[in-house]
Simulated assay, not measured.
Amino acid sequence: MSRAFRVLVRNAMFRRVELAAFGRWTELAAVEPDSEWDAVAWMDAMAAYREEYDEIGTGPGSRGPELFMVTEGPDTWTVRQTFDDPEGDRDWGISATVDLAASDEAGEAVVTVTAVGPL
Rank of each mutant, 00 (worst) to 15 (best):
Trp25Gly: 01
Ile94Met: 11
Trp37Arg: 03
Val7Trp: 02
Gln81His: 14
Ala20Phe: 09
Glu32Val: 12
Gly57Tyr: 03
Ala20Gly: 15
Val116Trp: 05
Val9Thr: 06
Trp92Ile: 03
Val17Asn: 09
Thr76Tyr: 15
Arg50Lys: 13
Thr58Ser: 06
Arg15Phe: 02
Ala109Cys: 12
Ala20His: 13
Leu8Asn: 05
Tyr49Ala: 12
Asp38Met: 09
Gly88Met: 08
Asn11Val: 09
Ala47Phe: 15
Asp104Leu: 07
Arg80Lys: 15
Val31His: 05
Ala41Asn: 06
Leu100Gln: 06
Asp75Leu: 13
Val116Cys: 15
Tyr53Asn: 03
Arg6Asn: 08
Asp85Pro: 00
Asp104Ile: 03
Ile94Ser: 03
Trp92Lys: 07
Gly57Glu: 01
Asp84Arg: 06
Ala4Arg: 02
Asp99Leu: 03
Glu51Asn: 14
Leu8Ala: 04
Trp42Arg: 02
Glu66Gln: 11
Val116Pro: 12
Met69Gly: 03
Leu28Pro: 11
Val17Pro: 07
Leu28Asn: 08
Asp44Gly: 04
Val111His: 04
Pro60Asn: 04
Ala115Phe: 13
Asp104Trp: 01
Leu67Gly: 00
Arg90Tyr: 11
Phe5Val: 02
Glu66Thr: 07
Ala29Ile: 01
Met46His: 15
Pro118Ala: 06
Gly59Val: 03
Arg50Ala: 11
Ala109Leu: 12
Thr114Met: 13
Val17Gln: 10
Glu87Tyr: 10
Asp91Cys: 13
Ser103Cys: 06
Trp42Leu: 04
Gly107Ile: 01
Arg63Cys: 04
Glu108His: 14
Thr76Trp: 13
Ala12Trp: 00
Ala20Tyr: 08
